[in-house]
Design a binder for these strands. Sequence first.
DNA 1: CGACTTTGACCTGCGC
DNA 2: GCGCAGGTCAAAGTCG
Length: 210
Amino acid sequence: MEGHQAQYYPPPSTSSSLALLPPQNPSYLFPSSSTSMNPPPLPEPHHHQQAQVPDIDWISLLSGHHDHQINNNEPAAMVEVNNNENNVIEAAREERGSNKRKGGEGRKISVMKKASRPRFAFQTRSADDILDDGYRWRKYGQKAVKNSLYPRSYYRCTHHTCSVKKQVQRLSKDTSIVVTTYEGVHNHPCEKLMETLTPLLKQMQFLSRF
DNA sequence: CGACTTTGACCTGCGC
DNA sequence: GCGCAGGTCAAAGTCG
């Protein structure tokens, strides 16, 4: 384990009532308070959550240009998320094991060096493991996790140019809480958001002519 | 038939 | 060096 400190958004609550936020697009989260990036949109709030809607930079949001702001963040923003108490998320293997490939017949080892990527964890109270954050995900693995009754699921963004991953795991301590860890930054706009906003923007453009 | 999920195998890193 | 644990791959299965 390296000494990276967990970064929660929101920060882990010390009170009994967890600070819960809607499943948000992590790419629009601010990795650190120093960034000028606008907070994320709220694609599809779940029943259990009600958050204040922040000011949203729709233009950068739709264009995806905000990514650079995130990527240019100092490595300190490349965080690990770890809940030692319950072993909820052990993202400490940030680099470890991420560049490997299966050995054996015909399989080549990919030596592609993975850049450190920002990671964010969410705790949400929901009956559903899968949070609808507006992106499409493909599950590529599931593992039983030590000290946890529930398995951890691994998802990858299905967008061909996007390598964002997320891990989803339910707390064994409090089974109503789902911990979602995002790794990386989407390099494309949110599909659902685009679907919703495109007609709206067109209409606004049309009206703005008058 | 394509997209997605499931699941066992395999890989790497770490601690002992 | 060995075993454990986490992360990923990919074939097979499922679904719309």
